[in-house]
Design a protein around this nucleic acid. Structure first.
Length: 555
RNA sequence: GGCGCUAUGGUCAAGAGGUUAAGACGCAGCCCUCUCAAGGCUGAAUCACGGGUUCAAUUCCCGUUAGCGCUACCA
């Protein structure tokens, strides 16, 4: 046994498996040419927001389009930051957008798939096996330095005006501990981390290729980075990334841009472990305007709760809207395609990594609302009804009960103006529907009326009586309007609006004014969807009731 | 401090060594219209700055600046 092997045994006497064991256990994937294996690897430290959802979406779509595999891996090695029910939240959020991983973790926190477990805290033995192997080979070593010692090193480097700050070269005091020293430290109960011995020197440069950004050149990593943390004996991101993405057969690592600088470090790890490098694709992260500074910045879980996908769900943005929006920020040529193919299935559009923007996009709520409005306008009334109901059952029980009680009526209501050549676009999210349509239902009609200026209240009873008398739901829209005109005409309202505008003093109003009176009586509002449709839906009896209520109110 | 990424209207952005510099959202106005939501039309608004290279640069190169990120036993 050489010194390295002795140290490895002192450190991890209970680790008896070898890398070969895991290489055999987790066989290489057998996939068709060109198939990509991608993963979404979130930490359960908070909710999923638009930024992580976008990354996840890229992973999902790239795997799907290449007939590959998309899996979910939970990166929970930071025990301090892990929150309760974080994993459930992630699984739930993805499910609400119909993103289902081919392999990963289900809602009961059970791993499924051939490379299980997919939760990193359950893979500790694997990491330690590889770490031990690196120590045996002299490529990694235990470090017993305390926080204070590390701080002192840093301070010294700053005093020496070193370009490079960190644990490396001469400053890496634990690099050459003897087995005896290690044993002593262990016996003394000193905590240790495992550090990877960087093969690079200050000044070294490395090249690599990024799928999105092309050739990259930057300083190599010279720090002896930690690959096993002291307290938990779990790896930080870098080592877990190398081991897991190798063992799980990831071909394409899509992650946000903040990782770009750590590629050199990751390359060293992969090389030392004898792994093939996956291809990297560093995508721009979604940004937000910071209200305090007036500047763009990376989206933050802490500061931007409204970008949480759970918030989208709560506000009642349909899954479809979010996906459509993600397509538009993923590849901007999607918008053109959508204009050319308004009714095509989005999945027919090919998302490419090359068409992605390199600079971070702001999350644009206006744009998102517009997208959502369009998506909803293309749904059938039945679908709108079902989705609103489903949403309301959780977020607005009163509304749900009313919708359920008046199912047929509600579907007809959502059908108003929906099947026109230019369908109505008034609903952005399900949350809006109660405000927009609540007055259709007697339970929610509040008896408040928006009033027009200069209303001829004395005419109302007359107008309403005649209207009810002549109302016929079998006629078409223009016949109906002729009827309204003639009522107005008899009472001194101009049948021609243009004519009225020329001589406003000669009339009490115009035919549209008559409509407005009826509209206010029936709905309490000056602005509503198509009046004739509403009247047909209400029927004479309901119209009579609402008109009487209005007349009683203004007396 | 060191390193890196990015830079076209308010926002998302297309674009090519020579263009009247697309389009979408938002904004304004007009039209259509029984109101609204739409829809149609029009408009305001952009190549960060300074040097090169070139007949010609917003486009290529180099700086500067700005924003963002990394520089942890966070991911």
């Amino acid at each position: 046994m050489n010194n390295y092997e002795k140290i490895a045994e002192l450190l991890f006497p209970n680790i008896t498996k070898t890398p070969e064991y895991y290489e055999k256990k987790y066989a290489k994937r057998n996939l068709p040419e060109g198939a990509k294996v991608t993963r979404f690897a979130p930490s359960p430290t908070g909710y999923v927001h638009m930024g992580s959802l976008l990354t996840c979406f890229y992973d999902y779509i790239i795997a799907k389009q290449s007939h590959g595999v998309f899996f979910l891996r939970i990166e929970d090695t930071d025990l301090e930051r892990t929150i309760d029910h974080g994993v459930e939240g992630i699984v739930e959020d993805l499910a609400s957008f119909d993103i289902h991983a081919d392999e990963g973790v289900d809602e009961n926190l059970q791993s499924y798939g051939n490379y299980a477990p997919y939760i990193q805290t359950q893979r500790q033995e694997i990491y330690l096996t590889y770490a031990k192997d690196l120590v045996r080979k002299g490529l990694a070593y235990p470090c017993f330095c305390t926080k204070e010692e590390l701080q002192a090193i840093r301070q010294k480097q700053e005093e020496n005006k070193e370009v490079q700050i960190g644990y490396y070269g001469e400053y890496a005091t634990c690099r050459n501990l003897t087995p005896e020293e290690v044993e002593q430290n262990l016996k003394a109960g000193k905590p240790f981390v495992i550090r990877f011995k960087s093969p690079a020197k200050v000044g070294d440069r490395v090249h690599f290729y990024d799928v999105l950004r092309g050739e990259q050149e930057m300083a190599d990593n010279v720090n002896d980075v930690v690959i096993i943390k002291s307290k938990s004996l779990l790896p930080p991101y870098n080592f877990a990334h190398a081991i897991d993405d190798h063992l799980m057969g990831t071909t394409t690592v899509i992650r946000s841009n903040e990782w770009l600088n750590s590629v050199p470090e990751h390359m060293q790890l992969f090389r030392a472990l004898g792994f093939d490098q996956p291809e990297y694709c560093h995508v721009a992260f979604v940004q937000r305007f910071d209200q305090e500074t007036g500047q763009k910045r990376k989206i933050s879980k802490r500061k931007d709760p409204e970008t949480a996908v759970s918030y989208m769900v709560k506000a009642g943005y349909p899954t479809d809207s979010v996906m459509e929006y993600l397509y538009t920020i993923a590849n901007t040529n999607f918008e053109e395609w959508r204009i050319a193919n308004p009714n095509a299935n989005r999945e027919e559009f090919l998302i490419t990594l090359e068409k992605m923007s390199l600079s971070g996009a702001l999350f644009d709520l206006d744009k998102f609302n517009d997208v959502s409005k369009n998506v909803i306008s293309k749904m059938s009334a039945e679908k709108v009804y079902e989705l609103v109901l489903q949403w309301a059952k959780t977020y607005d029980v009163e509304w749900a009960e009313i919708l359920e009680k008046h199912r047929e009526f509600a579907i007809k209501m959502f059908a108003i103006d929906r099947y026109n050549q230019k369908p109505r676009k008034d609903i952005v999210k399900w949350e809006d529907t109660k405000n927009l349509y609540g007055y259709f239902f007697d339970e929610l009609f509040d008896g408040q009326y928006e009033m027009e200026e200069n209303m001829h209240l004395e005419d109302l009873k007359d107008i309403f009586d005649r209207y009810l008398e002549h109302f016929d739901d079998q006629v078409d829209n223009s016949q109906w309007f002729e009827m309204v005109k003639s009522i107005g005409c008899d009472l001194g309202y101009c049948p021609q609006i243009k004519e009225y505008k020329k001589n406003p003093d000669q009339y009490k109003g115009h035919c549209g004014t008559v409509c407005t009176y009826i509209r206010i009586a029936l709905t309490g509002r000056k602005n509503t969807p198509d009046l004739f449709s509403i009247c047909k839906l209400f029927g004479k009896e309901k119209m009579r009731q609402r008109m009487q209520a209005f007349l009683a109110k203004i007396k």
